[in-house]
Design a protein around this nucleic acid. Structure first.
Length: 474
DNA sequence: TGAAATGTTGGGGCG
DNA sequence: ACGCCCCAACATTTC
């Protein structure tokens, strides 16, 4: 009787042990499991902050695996070649992974699957990164949803299975294949000075994510519906970075939210709706992959957006120097923490695409470089939503007024006070941290004078954007 | 999960 | 008591 062959578990955006169908399938194959993470072109192509944050996640996840008597094997190269080599080295009989849905990942995974099958290796991809597989949610006419509300109604009462337990053990092979060293990957290099500043704001790893969710559903979810709109409060779930790296699963969130709902928590439904917004974004990315790079509504292609990301105005936007306090506070929050409050994301997106008449691609690219919770699907949908070119998007003429929004959602102006140091007698330490994080080449100092007037005035910018919109229609 | 302009209503002050 | 005006509050329309 022959021993059962090893199984390779290709780890990607699922840095968790609990509720991980790919891992459980690999274990169920019966042999030793070899977890491997591959630094391929998709990893190399990540922006500075997401790449750095990935490194933190991998470090934590490798430790977690070691706690299970396992390891995380690190390899670099083209994914199919790496997996082929690993199969040859270990005699593995099968490869398992969790599915992804953005076009680059699908193209890669399709190649890998075909190549390994040609070799006679068993290959299986598994669900887990979304609640509902994109091909399982469709309207009565048999098409995917292009509008959020009907999609919400279609899925809100669907049965979602209970999350899978953490495995009791991850069976190790008798001999481990060689691994590269995470330090040698230098995933944080592009972050430069930002990494040290950004570090305390990260919530890294499965255990930390679970703790945060516990706090959220036990305490914060009660007031979530209202409080989530206030950028100066810690009132959101704050688990976006964990979801994007799979340190927590959407199913774990969904089930916790449902439990809170049945216990009468006021804000639970609002939170569940946010989880479905994430689904909506993923389904759109799957069914209409051009959403990531081109106007979803092609009739926007002729719109006179500037695509120059280096104009003085856009540089001011990127560097939190527009002279619009809500906008600048938000851009600095992102630079320091790697994240930004969701209302602030809408406002900086509106200011860039409307007042500065700049293409959403420019904003999306900057977010891709700065966000530790960078998610390809959510950002594609979000940017096209705010620009007006996307599915179920805000009409173009819905232009946010950052002053009105500030008075409504941050009446004490605590948010700019926290993030903007200039002109304050005793600046908040977060506001000072911004100047530690930014490249020296920006030439910024806390002793600078804050811009006396916006780079583009709120009234003029609004009028200019609406005029361009009217002319395009005519 | 918009803002601003325009329209409507009703209370109160006043002659 | 009545008409008139002002203005806040709210509703509707427009971009």
């Amino acid at each position: 009787m022959s021993e059962t062959k090893p199984t390779i578990w290709w780890v990607r955006r699922d840095l968790r042990l609990a509720d991980n169908p790919a891992l459980m399938a690999a274990i169920a194959a019966g042999g030793p499991v070899i977890p491997v993470f591959i630094r391929d072109a998709l990893v190399e192509g990540l922006g500075a902050a997401p790449k750095w944050r990935l490194g933190l996640g991998l470090e934590a996840f490798a430790r977690a695996l070691e706690g299970m008597g396992s390891r995380l094997v690190l390899r670099s190269g083209e994914a199919l070649q790496v997996l082929r080599a690993l199969v040859a080295e270990t005699g593995a009989g099968s490869v398992h992974w969790g599915r992804l849905y953005d076009p680059d990942a699908i193209a890669r995974d399709t190649r890998v699957k075909a190549g390994l099958k040609d070799d006679g290796v068993k290959v299986a991809s598994h669900a887990g990164h979304v609640l509902f597989e994109p091909w399982t949610v469709e309207s009565k006419t048999g098409s995917f949803y292009r509008v959020y509300s009907p999609m919400w109604r279609a899925v809100k009462d669907r049965e979602v299975g209970a999350p899978l337990a953490t495995p009791g053990a991850v069976p190790a092979p008798e001999a481990w294949p060689g691994t590269e060293a995470l330090e040698d990957w230098a995933l944080g290099t592009a972050m430069e000075r930002g990494a040290q500043v950004c570090m305390p704001y990260q919530r890294v790893g499965e255990a930390v994510a679970q703790a945060r969710m516990g706090w959220f559903v036990d305490e914060a979810i009660q007031t979530y519906k209202e409080a989530r709109n206030y950028p100066a409060r810690d009132a959101t779930s704050g688990m976006s970075e964990n979801l994007t790296h799979g340190e927590i699963s959407p199913r774990q969130c969904w089930c916790a939210g449902q439990r809170a709902l049945h216990e009468g928590a006021k804000g639970a439904e609002t939170w569940l709706k946010e989880l479905v917004w994430r689904e909506f974004a993923y389904h759109l990315t799957y069914h209409t992959p051009h959403i990531a790079s081109e106007n979803w509504r092609r009739e926007w292609d002729g719109f006179p957006w500037s695509e120059d990301g280096d104009t003085a105005e856009v540089l001011a936007w990127k560097r939190g120097q527009t002279g619009v306090p809500f906008v600048d506070a938000a851009m600095r929050e992102m630079y320091v923490t790697g994240k930004m409050h969701n209302r602030a994301r809408m406002i900086v997106g509106s200011y860039l695409t409307k007042h500065l008449m700049t293409h959403w691609k420019v904003g999306k690219a900057w977010f891709e470089d700065c966000l530790t919770d960078w998610d390809p699907a959510s950002n594609a949908m979000g940017w096209q939503w705010v620009a007006g070119s996307g599915p179920d998007a805000a009409p173009y003429f819905r232009i946010f007024n950052p002053e009105t929004q500030l008075d409504r959602f941050d009446p004490d102006h605590a948010y700019p006070a926290r993030w903007i140091a200039e002109g304050q007698e005793a600046p908040h330490q977060d506001a000072l941290a911004f100047f530690e994080a930014v490249p020296r080449s920006w030439g910024l100092s806390q002793d600078d004078t804050y811009p006396a007037a916006p780079v583009v005035g709120l009234r003029e910018g609004r009028t200019r954007a609406l005029t361009a919109y009217e002319e395009r229609k005519g």
